[in-house]
Design a protein around this nucleic acid. Structure first.
Lengths: 202, 202
DNA sequence: CTACAATCGGATAGGCGACTCCGTTTCAGC
DNA sequence: GCTGAAACGGAGTCGCCTATCCGATTGTAG
């Protein structure tokens, strides 16, 4: 279905220099605006913020949904890369939790994209399959390492790990002005992930 | 600010019989439709489903937001009542978890109302203060009982408990077709809530 | 039963947001 | 620099959704 039509990564003809520049700026700005105003932000707002005509937005992304999807894919790609980096750098017992913290420390709203896409009726699985797969693979590696190191309970698989990550983001959104409560909430989840390994609490 | 203008609970003049009936049916239908189609469902759809003209909807709820809010308040009231009931009926060690399960077992979408209202820019705190307070009080009682019984970690307060509840709902939404994964996710949260009490896992 | 007021219903106004059309501008090869 | 093609900008279209107006209907008091 989704043969790669993104000229920046593959496909037909190389974009003209200005077009390539605009495309990149649009992605940048769209990510910021969606994060700030929510995914309901209007296309016009993004165009204005990027100092570009509306038509340009729709030339690059034939649909608002397509733009949303492109932004999401970008985020997922970054996440997968961070995951791989942590798996290589951090100790097997810490890498998974470091990844968790990394995701949770980002502006909370940014993590709402997957849910927003689901709301919009996008088939998240298919639409983001490549980037999604990359994240899933990184998570799998992190999880298996952590389990081998005894840092995480053994009965735990990637699907619920993903869901727990998303859910915890939502959790923290609701605790925005309450840092101590947010910290305790994180601790609860963390201890839950560790339960049964003998390492939960002193 | 929000002096009670709801003629079914207080205030000005008693509604005519048919008006009262329509109002009740509207709330019922709206809850169902919002739960099914999401909070973006159009007012017209709700009117049609309730076999009522659009004007009738707006006569009872001057704004879509008001309707959303009324539905939310109804849900919160029901929740508070269930919480009080469980606190009285179940053992202090079980009541809190029973309440958790009760909330989580409802159609997941139903639990998205608070977030949806926040998205819509409603001041959730003020708008739902009465019903919200009732829920918070019920939760406080449940939590304190559970802590006294040693069923829940002692460092835990109501704000993060609420957030954990909301976050866990989101979590389970993402695991809709995967019952075993959903079960494991629940277990993670539950064990996290118990961590440090010596009762997490056999 | 009658009459009045409360309530209803659907057509319609009004606004907003996604998407398109076309004249204008900018890039890139010669 | 010249020229054709690629890319641009923004005014305009279309559809959807909230909210209102007013003639028709229905409950209720006497």
């Amino acid at each position: 279905m989704t043969t790669d039509q993104n000229p920046s990564t593959a496909g037909s003809k190389p974009l003209r220099a200005d077009a390539r520049r605009n495309r990149a700026r649009l992605l940048e700005v769209a990510e910021a605006v969606f994060a700030e105003r929510g995914t309901g932000a209007s296309t016009e707002e993004i165009a204005r913020e990027a100092k570009v005509g509306i038509a340009t937005v729709f030339r690059h992304f034939p649909t608002k949904e397509a733009l949303l999807e492109a932004v999401l894919v970008r985020r997922l790609e970054k996440l997968a890369e961070e995951g791989r980096r942590l798996a290589a750098e951090a100790g097997p017992g810490d890498a998974l939790f470091a990844f968790f913290d990394l995701v949770l420390d980002q502006s909370p709203v940014k993590n709402a994209f997957a849910a927003a896409l689901a709301d919009a009726g996008v088939d998240t699985r298919a639409a983001t399959s490549d980037a999604g797969r990359a994240v899933r693979e990184a998570l799998t590696a992190l999880l298996e390492d952590a389990q081998r190191a005894g840092a995480v309970r053994r009965d735990l698989e990637v699907p619920e790990l993903t869901a727990i990550l998303v859910g915890t983001c939502r959790m923290l959104e609701h605790l925005d002005g309450h840092p101590e409560a947010a910290l305790r909430a994180r601790t609860v989840v963390r201890d839950g992930l560790r339960a049964g390994t003998g390492g939960a609490r002193p």
